[in-house]
Design a protein around this nucleic acid. Structure first.
Lengths: 109, 109
DNA sequence: GAGTAATATTGTAATATTGCGATGTTAAAA
DNA sequence: TTTTAACATCGCAATATTACAATATTACTC
Protein backbone atom coordinates (compact mmCIF):
# COMPACT_ATOMS: atom_id res chain seq x y z
CA UNK A 1 0.00 0.00 0.00
CA UNK A 2 0.98 3.63 -0.29
CA UNK A 3 2.43 3.16 -3.74
CA UNK A 4 0.69 4.16 -6.93
CA UNK A 5 -0.42 1.03 -8.76
CA UNK A 6 1.25 1.81 -12.05
CA UNK A 7 0.65 -1.67 -13.44
CA UNK A 8 -3.12 -1.29 -13.64
CA UNK A 9 -2.88 1.80 -15.84
CA UNK A 10 -1.75 2.07 -19.41
CA UNK A 11 1.55 3.59 -20.44
CA UNK A 12 -0.01 6.77 -21.79
CA UNK A 13 -1.79 7.59 -18.56
CA UNK A 14 1.28 6.78 -16.51
CA UNK A 15 3.45 9.01 -18.65
CA UNK A 16 1.04 11.92 -18.65
CA UNK A 17 0.83 11.67 -14.87
CA UNK A 18 4.62 11.57 -14.64
CA UNK A 19 4.93 14.72 -16.72
CA UNK A 20 2.18 16.51 -14.81
CA UNK A 21 3.89 15.64 -11.55
CA UNK A 22 6.88 17.74 -12.55
CA UNK A 23 4.62 20.78 -12.78
CA UNK A 24 2.75 19.91 -9.60
CA UNK A 25 5.07 21.75 -7.23
CA UNK A 26 5.24 25.56 -7.14
CA UNK A 27 9.01 25.54 -6.68
CA UNK A 28 9.44 23.55 -9.87
CA UNK A 29 7.06 25.85 -11.71
CA UNK A 30 9.09 28.80 -10.47
CA UNK A 31 12.37 27.17 -11.45
CA UNK A 32 11.19 26.44 -14.97
CA UNK A 33 9.84 29.97 -15.35
CA UNK A 34 13.06 31.46 -14.05
CA UNK A 35 15.32 29.41 -16.27
CA UNK A 36 13.20 30.11 -19.32
CA UNK A 37 13.20 33.83 -18.56
CA UNK A 38 16.96 33.92 -18.19
CA UNK A 39 17.69 34.75 -21.82
CA UNK A 40 20.82 33.87 -23.66
CA UNK A 41 22.34 31.62 -21.19
CA UNK A 42 23.77 30.80 -17.95
CA UNK A 43 21.92 30.51 -14.75
CA UNK A 44 22.77 28.45 -11.75
CA UNK A 45 22.05 28.90 -8.14
CA UNK A 46 20.72 32.30 -8.48
CA UNK A 47 17.78 29.96 -8.10
CA UNK A 48 18.65 29.44 -4.46
CA UNK A 49 18.46 33.19 -3.95
CA UNK A 50 15.52 33.84 -6.23
CA UNK A 51 13.34 31.12 -4.80
CA UNK A 52 13.67 30.96 -1.03
CA UNK A 53 14.73 27.35 -0.64
CA UNK A 54 17.95 25.75 0.52
CA UNK A 55 20.48 24.66 -2.06
CA UNK A 56 19.93 20.92 -1.60
CA UNK A 57 16.20 21.43 -2.06
CA UNK A 58 16.65 23.36 -5.29
CA UNK A 59 19.10 20.75 -6.50
CA UNK A 60 16.53 18.06 -5.77
CA UNK A 61 13.81 19.87 -7.68
CA UNK A 62 16.17 20.43 -10.59
CA UNK A 63 16.83 16.73 -10.80
CA UNK A 64 13.09 16.03 -10.88
CA UNK A 65 12.78 18.38 -13.82
CA UNK A 66 15.81 16.80 -15.49
CA UNK A 67 14.29 13.33 -15.13
CA UNK A 68 11.80 14.03 -17.89
CA UNK A 69 14.49 15.66 -19.99
CA UNK A 70 13.28 19.22 -19.69
CA UNK A 71 16.67 20.76 -18.96
CA UNK A 72 19.91 21.21 -20.81
CA UNK A 73 22.90 21.47 -18.58
CA UNK A 74 26.34 22.77 -19.42
CA UNK A 75 29.32 23.22 -17.17
CA UNK A 76 30.65 26.77 -17.20
CA UNK A 77 33.57 27.06 -14.92
CA UNK A 78 32.63 25.69 -11.57
CA UNK A 79 29.05 26.67 -12.02
CA UNK A 80 26.37 25.03 -14.10
CA UNK A 81 24.28 26.64 -16.73
CA UNK A 82 20.78 25.30 -17.18
CA UNK A 83 18.48 26.00 -20.05
CA UNK A 84 15.13 24.69 -21.17
CA UNK A 85 15.09 21.86 -23.67
CA UNK A 86 12.62 23.54 -25.95
CA UNK A 87 11.76 20.48 -28.01
CA UNK A 88 11.00 18.52 -24.89
CA UNK A 89 8.93 21.34 -23.45
CA UNK A 90 7.00 21.40 -26.70
CA UNK A 91 6.50 17.67 -26.50
CA UNK A 92 5.07 18.06 -22.99
CA UNK A 93 2.85 20.84 -24.17
CA UNK A 94 1.50 18.72 -27.01
CA UNK A 95 1.04 15.72 -24.73
CA UNK A 96 -1.02 17.72 -22.27
CA UNK A 97 -2.89 19.61 -24.93
CA UNK A 98 -3.85 16.39 -26.69
CA UNK A 99 -5.24 15.14 -23.42
CA UNK A 100 -7.38 18.25 -23.09
CA UNK A 101 -8.53 18.03 -26.67
CA UNK A 102 -9.56 14.42 -26.24
CA UNK A 103 -11.39 14.95 -22.98
CA UNK A 104 -13.12 17.99 -24.39
CA UNK A 105 -14.20 16.67 -27.74
CA UNK A 106 -15.85 13.66 -26.24
CA UNK A 107 -17.33 15.70 -23.41
CA UNK A 108 -19.04 18.10 -25.80
CA UNK A 109 -20.81 15.33 -27.70
CA UNK B 1 9.43 20.14 7.19
CA UNK B 2 7.73 17.80 4.75
CA UNK B 3 5.22 20.44 3.74
CA UNK B 4 5.44 22.48 0.59
CA UNK B 5 6.33 26.06 1.48
CA UNK B 6 3.42 27.69 -0.28
CA UNK B 7 4.08 31.07 1.29
CA UNK B 8 7.34 31.66 -0.55
CA UNK B 9 5.70 31.25 -3.96
CA UNK B 10 3.27 33.51 -5.70
CA UNK B 11 -0.40 32.68 -6.12
CA UNK B 12 -0.09 31.90 -9.81
CA UNK B 13 2.60 29.30 -9.32
CA UNK B 14 0.77 27.75 -6.41
CA UNK B 15 -2.42 27.48 -8.40
CA UNK B 16 -0.77 26.05 -11.49
CA UNK B 17 0.91 23.45 -9.29
CA UNK B 18 -2.40 22.65 -7.63
CA UNK B 19 -4.08 22.09 -10.98
CA UNK B 20 -1.18 20.03 -12.31
CA UNK B 21 -1.31 17.85 -9.21
CA UNK B 22 -4.79 16.68 -10.16
CA UNK B 23 -3.38 15.31 -13.40
CA UNK B 24 -0.31 13.86 -11.72
CA UNK B 25 -1.83 10.50 -10.88
CA UNK B 26 -2.65 7.92 -13.58
CA UNK B 27 -5.88 6.90 -11.86
CA UNK B 28 -7.15 10.48 -11.98
CA UNK B 29 -6.12 10.79 -15.61
CA UNK B 30 -8.01 7.57 -16.33
CA UNK B 31 -11.05 8.74 -14.40
CA UNK B 32 -11.21 12.03 -16.26
CA UNK B 33 -10.80 10.30 -19.60
CA UNK B 34 -13.46 7.77 -18.75
CA UNK B 35 -15.99 10.32 -17.59
CA UNK B 36 -15.38 12.52 -20.60
CA UNK B 37 -15.78 9.55 -22.94
CA UNK B 38 -19.06 8.55 -21.35
CA UNK B 39 -21.22 10.58 -23.70
CA UNK B 40 -24.60 11.95 -22.85
CA UNK B 41 -24.59 11.36 -19.23
CA UNK B 42 -24.54 9.12 -16.33
CA UNK B 43 -21.61 7.26 -15.06
CA UNK B 44 -20.84 6.24 -11.54
CA UNK B 45 -18.88 3.39 -10.15
CA UNK B 46 -18.39 1.69 -13.36
CA UNK B 47 -15.18 3.48 -12.54
CA UNK B 48 -14.47 0.97 -9.82
CA UNK B 49 -14.76 -1.81 -12.37
CA UNK B 50 -13.11 0.00 -15.25
CA UNK B 51 -10.10 1.11 -13.30
CA UNK B 52 -8.90 -1.64 -10.99
CA UNK B 53 -9.06 0.22 -7.69
CA UNK B 54 -11.22 -0.20 -4.64
CA UNK B 55 -14.32 1.95 -4.26
CA UNK B 56 -12.95 4.14 -1.47
CA UNK B 57 -9.85 4.82 -3.52
CA UNK B 58 -11.87 5.89 -6.55
CA UNK B 59 -14.07 8.01 -4.34
CA UNK B 60 -10.99 9.67 -2.92
CA UNK B 61 -9.57 10.43 -6.37
CA UNK B 62 -12.93 11.78 -7.48
CA UNK B 63 -12.93 14.22 -4.61
CA UNK B 64 -9.45 15.42 -5.57
CA UNK B 65 -10.74 16.13 -9.05
CA UNK B 66 -13.82 17.81 -7.64
CA UNK B 67 -11.68 20.08 -5.48
CA UNK B 68 -10.61 22.13 -8.48
CA UNK B 69 -14.15 22.12 -9.81
CA UNK B 70 -13.60 19.83 -12.74
CA UNK B 71 -16.67 17.66 -12.17
CA UNK B 72 -20.39 18.16 -12.29
CA UNK B 73 -22.31 15.78 -10.12
CA UNK B 74 -25.98 14.93 -10.22
CA UNK B 75 -27.90 12.41 -8.18
CA UNK B 76 -29.76 9.91 -10.31
CA UNK B 77 -31.59 7.50 -8.13
CA UNK B 78 -29.22 6.04 -5.62
CA UNK B 79 -26.29 6.42 -7.96
CA UNK B 80 -24.37 9.52 -8.93
CA UNK B 81 -23.77 10.79 -12.38
CA UNK B 82 -20.55 12.66 -12.98
CA UNK B 83 -19.67 14.73 -15.95
CA UNK B 84 -16.85 17.02 -16.90
CA UNK B 85 -17.24 20.72 -16.19
CA UNK B 86 -16.19 21.77 -19.64
CA UNK B 87 -15.65 25.43 -18.85
CA UNK B 88 -13.40 24.54 -15.97
CA UNK B 89 -11.50 22.03 -18.05
CA UNK B 90 -11.01 24.75 -20.64
CA UNK B 91 -9.79 27.11 -17.97
CA UNK B 92 -7.23 24.54 -16.86
CA UNK B 93 -6.18 24.01 -20.42
CA UNK B 94 -5.66 27.72 -20.93
CA UNK B 95 -3.81 28.08 -17.64
CA UNK B 96 -1.38 25.34 -18.55
CA UNK B 97 -1.06 26.41 -22.14
CA UNK B 98 -0.26 29.97 -21.10
CA UNK B 99 2.48 28.63 -18.91
CA UNK B 100 3.96 26.76 -21.85
CA UNK B 101 3.67 29.77 -24.11
CA UNK B 102 5.43 31.97 -21.60
CA UNK B 103 8.25 29.55 -20.90
CA UNK B 104 8.72 28.95 -24.58
CA UNK B 105 8.63 32.48 -25.86
CA UNK B 106 11.26 33.64 -23.46
CA UNK B 107 13.31 30.50 -23.97
CA UNK B 108 13.48 31.04 -27.71
CA UNK B 109 14.84 34.54 -27.39
C1' DG C 1 -39.78 -0.14 8.31
C1' DA C 2 -36.09 -3.86 6.86
C1' DG C 3 -33.14 -4.73 3.17
C1' DT C 4 -30.06 -3.32 -0.23
C1' DA C 5 -27.28 -0.74 -3.68
C1' DA C 6 -24.33 3.23 -4.43
C1' DT C 7 -21.36 6.19 -2.61
C1' DA C 8 -18.86 8.85 1.19
C1' DT C 9 -16.15 8.91 5.33
C1' DT C 10 -13.05 7.17 8.82
C1' DG C 11 -9.05 4.98 10.29
C1' DT C 12 -4.82 3.12 9.31
C1' DA C 13 -0.70 0.94 7.05
C1' DA C 14 2.72 1.57 3.54
C1' DT C 15 5.15 4.52 0.83
C1' DA C 16 6.40 9.05 -1.31
C1' DT C 17 7.55 13.84 -1.06
C1' DT C 18 9.43 18.02 0.83
C1' DG C 19 13.00 20.30 3.02
C1' DC C 20 17.38 20.84 5.10
C1' DG C 21 21.93 20.04 7.59
C1' DA C 22 26.00 17.68 6.91
C1' DT C 23 29.06 16.01 3.84
C1' DG C 24 30.94 14.72 -0.67
C1' DT C 25 32.77 16.21 -5.34
C1' DT C 26 34.75 18.99 -8.77
C1' DA C 27 37.13 22.66 -10.77
C1' DA C 28 38.82 27.21 -10.69
C1' DA C 29 41.73 30.47 -7.74
C1' DA C 30 45.14 31.58 -4.69
C1' DT D 1 48.61 22.08 -3.24
C1' DT D 2 45.44 24.21 -0.14
C1' DT D 3 41.39 26.94 -0.34
C1' DT D 4 37.06 28.11 -1.96
C1' DA D 5 32.81 28.33 -4.75
C1' DA D 6 29.19 25.75 -6.94
C1' DC D 7 26.97 22.15 -7.05
C1' DA D 8 25.33 16.98 -5.87
C1' DT D 9 24.34 13.38 -2.61
C1' DC D 10 23.18 11.30 1.89
C1' DG D 11 20.52 10.87 5.81
C1' DC D 12 16.86 12.12 8.33
C1' DA D 13 12.55 14.41 10.24
C1' DA D 14 8.00 16.03 9.12
C1' DT D 15 4.26 15.69 6.36
C1' DA D 16 1.51 14.12 2.30
C1' DT D 17 -0.28 10.61 -0.66
C1' DT D 18 -2.03 6.17 -1.99
C1' DA D 19 -4.78 2.36 -1.05
C1' DC D 20 -8.10 -0.26 1.33
C1' DA D 21 -11.15 -2.51 5.06
C1' DA D 22 -14.64 -1.21 7.93
C1' DT D 23 -18.27 1.60 8.63
C1' DA D 24 -21.49 5.38 7.85
C1' DT D 25 -24.91 7.57 4.86
C1' DT D 26 -28.41 8.07 1.58
C1' DA D 27 -32.15 6.81 -1.11
C1' DC D 28 -34.57 3.50 -3.46
C1' DT D 29 -37.18 -1.21 -3.13
C1' DC D 30 -39.75 -4.60 -0.99
Amino acid sequence: MGTTKLNIHDTDNNYLAKVAKVFSHPARVAIIKYISACNSGCICNDLVEEIGLAQPTISQHLSEIKKIGLLNQSAHGKSLSYSINTEKLNACRRLINDFFVKTQVSASR
